[in-house]
Amino acid sequence: MKRTIITIIVVAAALAGIMFLLNKNKAKNEAQTAVVAQKNAAVAVRADVVDTREVNTQYITNGSFSPKQEVVLSAEAAGRVIKVLVDEGDAVRAGQTLAIVDSDKQSVDLANMKANYENAKADLARYENAFKTGGVTQQQVDQAKLKVENAKNSLKSSQLSASDANISASFAGLVNKRSIEPGTYVSPGTQMFEIVNVSTLKLLVNVDEKNIGQVKVGQNIKVEATVLAGQAFAGVVKFIAPKADASLNFPVELEIKNNAANDLKAGMYGTAYFGSETKAAVLTVPRTAFVGSISSNEIFIINDGKVSLKKVVSGRSFGDYIEILSGLEKGTQVVTSGQINLLDGMAVEIIK
């Protein structure tokens, strides 16, 4: 009996010891979990400061060159191509014949009109001779003259229609593409040539709302082509869109005179420089500080380890930096990465 009591006491003591150890470990784990939870409550972000930076105040924007004039010449009448008079790359003048097309219908109509005209002239000659001897009246002679005039006009119309079968250049330029060969049968609408004029080109660029006020029609703009290092071209503002696109950018069209060698090609990437190249100290923040996009004008600032959403007024764009007109002071710390995970008042941890 005594042995049984001792055994029970030993077992109870062992169980009590085990429970003590388990409770101690539980408290320790809960304490560690609380520390980790407290640490993880801070959202990891990257940050920068609002600062006065020396920037180039010249506004720079990019676009692609396009020809001032370009046209695809198509057949206006059905027929077979007899001759092709130009090749791709050839320079052509306005009105120059590029291809000769034998149009069966036009040829038949032209032959008929010629025959009618010659017949009307012969009839008039006979009436005039008969009138001298009193064989016909003056009215009949006048009618014969009218028929000659009508036949002459019909012949001219037929000649014009026949000439439409041939393809001529509508302006001076270069043959960019030729789609026919001698012997090709064409129908109305068949594409035959593509003509472009690159002596003058257009450059379409977008100017944001912060800079559009300094752009005027007729303004001279320096233009460069990315692949033509060291060469600058003179551009002139020809058109400013009266309405901005969805991104609050205004399309602006520049006209650029090519050089004598026509080094500028349609499709090249071009850069336009608005304003003079001057340096100025401007209060700026990194472009990445804005929540969503620059147009939101919202930035998270950091104060005592927590963020608050600040409304600002942004100004000009200087590449990776945006001018701040109001809403922020120099030295203010702003979030530049991780905004998607933030809400107003959250704690943050700045990482490098």
Results as ranks from 00 to 15, higher is better:
residue 307 V to R: 04
residue 28 K to C: 02
residue 136 V to E: 02
residue 285 V to Y: 00
residue 203 L to H: 03
residue 68 K to C: 02
residue 23 N to K: 12
residue 317 S to G: 06
residue 46 R to H: 05
residue 347 A to E: 15
residue 11 V to H: 00
residue 326 S to N: 10
residue 56 N to E: 14
residue 254 L to T: 03
residue 274 F to I: 15
residue 194 E to C: 00
residue 336 T to S: 07
residue 133 T to A: 09
residue 184 T to C: 12
residue 302 I to H: 06
residue 255 E to L: 12
residue 218 G to K: 06
residue 44 A to D: 12
residue 247 S to R: 13
residue 33 T to K: 14
residue 195 I to Y: 02
residue 90 D to V: 02
residue 281 A to R: 11
residue 34 A to T: 14
residue 294 I to F: 09
residue 88 E to G: 07
residue 209 E to L: 07
residue 292 G to K: 10
residue 320 D to M: 10
residue 50 V to A: 08
residue 284 T to D: 02
residue 312 V to F: 05
residue 120 A to Y: 00
residue 270 G to H: 05
residue 49 V to Y: 11
residue 66 S to I: 05
residue 290 F to D: 01
residue 170 S to L: 08
residue 263 D to I: 04
residue 196 V to P: 00
residue 7 T to A: 12
residue 303 N to E: 15
residue 116 N to W: 03
residue 277 E to Q: 14
residue 70 E to A: 07
residue 328 L to C: 03
residue 157 S to C: 01
residue 349 E to D: 14
residue 190 T to G: 06
residue 1 M to G: 11
residue 321 Y to F: 14
residue 162 A to K: 03
residue 209 E to C: 06
residue 41 A to L: 12
residue 338 G to W: 00
residue 175 V to D: 02
residue 39 K to T: 13
residue 283 L to W: 00
residue 232 A to D: 13
residue 243 K to C: 03
residue 314 S to W: 03
residue 158 S to E: 02
residue 329 E to D: 14
residue 155 L to M: 13
residue 120 A to K: 01
residue 297 N to K: 09
residue 74 S to R: 08
residue 150 N to E: 12
residue 103 S to R: 01
residue 109 D to P: 02
residue 139 Q to V: 10
residue 176 N to G: 14
residue 310 K to I: 04
residue 36 V to M: 07
residue 279 K to Y: 10
residue 219 Q to R: 12
residue 195 I to C: 01
residue 61 T to F: 05
residue 72 V to P: 03
residue 263 D to A: 14
residue 17 G to I: 06
residue 238 K to N: 10
residue 131 F to Y: 09
residue 203 L to P: 00
residue 302 I to E: 08
residue 213 G to L: 11
residue 34 A to L: 14
residue 5 I to Y: 08
residue 244 A to V: 09
residue 97 T to V: 15
residue 75 A to L: 04
residue 254 L to P: 01
residue 75 A to V: 08
residue 2 K to V: 12
residue 347 A to G: 15
residue 336 T to K: 09
residue 233 F to Y: 13
residue 97 T to N: 07
residue 58 Q to C: 08
residue 200 T to H: 12
residue 292 G to R: 03
residue 52 T to F: 08
residue 351 I to K: 15
residue 71 V to D: 06
residue 80 R to E: 09
residue 111 A to N: 10
residue 174 L to A: 12
residue 92 V to H: 02
residue 150 N to I: 14
residue 274 F to A: 05
residue 203 L to D: 01
residue 63 G to C: 09
residue 127 Y to D: 04
residue 188 P to F: 06
residue 77 A to K: 10
residue 208 D to Q: 12
residue 256 I to Y: 02
residue 338 G to M: 03
residue 224 E to K: 15
residue 249 N to Q: 11
residue 277 E to W: 06
residue 302 I to Q: 07
residue 170 S to N: 12
residue 236 V to S: 10
residue 85 L to F: 04
residue 298 E to F: 04
residue 220 N to V: 14
residue 104 D to W: 06
residue 176 N to Y: 11
residue 71 V to E: 10
residue 222 K to V: 04
residue 131 F to Q: 04
residue 343 L to M: 14
residue 9 I to D: 00
residue 4 T to V: 12
residue 226 T to M: 11
residue 276 S to K: 15
residue 299 I to T: 04
residue 211 N to F: 05
residue 199 S to H: 11
residue 24 K to I: 08
residue 213 G to K: 13
residue 260 A to F: 10
residue 348 V to Q: 02
residue 118 E to M: 09
residue 200 T to L: 07
residue 210 K to T: 15
residue 46 R to A: 09
residue 78 A to W: 04
